[in-house]
């Protein structure tokens, strides 16, 4: 079973490697930043953006989500598979990942393809009223000069800052936050689960010691003691990870704007 899982991981890595080598990404092969952690929002598999920019963008997106509930993702690649165009890759990726809340659809995706010289801004269904197609186009136009000069770091950063300042405007922020209650970060929930589990193990250990003294449950002793012990020394992967490493579940109907540069 373990061998099978390793084989699957190996095949997936191999596929990703082949795609990376070929430099042609498709929505299904692009790596989601959420695979690393909940606080990551930037997919930069071809190192189009610098490490510092990626870090700044992650902080910006994280701040945006906390302050407005809007979930923004940034994807910067070299090129995509020839059977796609920039819009179809970006839109499919948006809906595949599910950027933005499942019930509110307040997601934004900024997609850049360096070699194709294309940039796409895709908006979720719930944010189209704020980030209209026209506004998206204006934001891209205002920063297209940076991209034309191959200054992708500045261009992408400025576009994201423009989006943030637009969404942070009082009336837009109020609209986005209407009826939204921030969820506690998933890792907090995970720690509570772990704490409860440790407490359970201690209680079981004390209880079995007590029973042992009384000379009872001789057959059950090993089972009860070994289970918690095994879990402590070889903890299973934290279940919260699978939930934490996901986007909100939002979708887009194709709104936004795109530009060639």
């Amino acid at each position: 079973m373990v061998g099978g899982k390793r084989l699957i991981v190996l095949i997936v890595c191999l596929c990703a490697f082949v795609c990376t080598r070929a430099g042609e990404w498709s929505p299904s092969t692009l790596p989601s930043p959420k695979a690393i952690g909940q606080e990551y929002y930037v997919s930069n598999p071809d190192a189009v953006l610098s490490t510092h920019t990626v870090q700044t963008l992650n902080e910006l997106c994280s701040r945006l989500k906390t302050n407005t509930s809007a979930e923004m993702a940034v994807v910067a690649i070299d090129t995509y598979a020839p059977s796609y165009d920039a819009h179809s890759v970006a839109l499919q990726l948006f809906n595949l990942w599910g950027i933005g809340g499942e019930d509110r659809h307040t997601g934004v995706l900024l997609f850049l393809s360096r070699s194709n010289r294309e940039i796409e801004l895709i908006t979720g269904k719930g944010i189209e009223g704020i980030l209209t197609d026209v506004r998206c186009g204006q934001i891209l136009d205002a920063n297209i000069a940076y991209l034309s000069k191959n200054d992708f770091d500045t261009g992408i950063l400025h576009i994201c800052e423009n989006i943030e300042s637009m969404l942070m405007q009082d009336e837009n922020r109020s609209e986005l936050l209407l009826g939204w209650s921030p969820k506690k970060p998933a890792h907090n929930t995970g720690w509570i689960v772990i704490l409860l589990f440790v407490l359970l193990v201690i209680v079981l250990w004390v209880w079995t010691r007590h029973k042992k003294r009384q000379g009872q449950l001789k057959r059950d002793r090993n089972v009860v003691i070994t289970r918690p012990n095994r879990d402590i020394t070889h903890p299973e992967p934290w279940r919260g990870n699978s939930r934490a490493s996901s986007w909100g579940g939002g979708s887009s109907a194709g709104g936004g704007a795109g530009r060639k540069f």
């Binding site: 839109l91 197609d133 998206c136 186009g137 136009d141 109907a253 194709g254 709104g255 704007a257």
Partner: peptide, 18 residues
Amino acid sequence: FRQLADQLEGTENRIAYA
């Protein structure tokens, strides 16, 4: 014109999606 063109492009994309 640019605004109208953006709206038209967005609408074409939405038509394809719908």
